[in-house]
């Protein structure tokens, strides 16, 4: 079983995260935790300073965190983006696609199941923020580069 999963090179951030409110106040912290109802865009002015953003999933069915993650990546955030809370093996792939690169679920995950999930789908239909080439780009390689 795995308690923590990271797809980043190097060490994961150990810094304890603070709330969005205290972060955007005067905190010097470089780690912040977004709750489901909070607006990820509030962090955009501080992206350079951040090394860890945790996005909390109170229930895996609460999909707000996917948008939060993608918004941060679209805005150029390059630090660690960690999904925490009710994260199950079935969510790892869509979360990866939305820009999460580390996971700290409430309940540990089964390694084998994670491996299977990660390799299940060779192709994806959408362009997101994970750099994977969508099927339409593969279909038209002469037009869509990168």
């Amino acid at each position: 079983m795995v308690e923590f999963l990271s797809f980043r090179d190097g060490e994961a951030s150990q810094e304890p995260s603070v709330t969005v409110e205290s972060f955007t106040g005067q905190s010097n912290s470089t780690a912040v935790r977004i709750e489901a109802g909070e607006d990820a865009r509030e962090l955009l002015p501080y992206l350079d300073r951040l090394s860890l953003v945790e996005v909390n999933f109170p229930a895996y069915t609460d999909g707000r965190g996917y948008s939060a993650a993608r918004i941060l990546r679209e805005a150029g955030y390059a630090g660690e983006l960690r999904a925490v809370g009710d994260v199950l093996v079935d969510q790892i792939v869509p979360m990866r696609r939305c820009g999460f690169d580390s996971f700290h679920p409430d309940k540990p995950l089964d390694d084998a199941a994670v491996e299977r999930a990660l390799h299940r789908y060779a192709d994806v239909y959408q362009k997101t923020v994970d750099g994977r080439r969508p099927v339409w780009a593969k279909r038209h390689p002469e037009i869509v580069n990168g």
Binding site: G63, Y66, P94, V124, Y125, Q126, T128
Partner: peptide, 14 residues
């Protein structure tokens, strides 16, 4: 259809 199939951001909508 293709775009919406396994769209990662919109799999757990309200």
């Amino acid at each position: 259809r293709q775009w919406s199939t396994f769209h990662p951001e919109f799999t757990y909508l309200p």
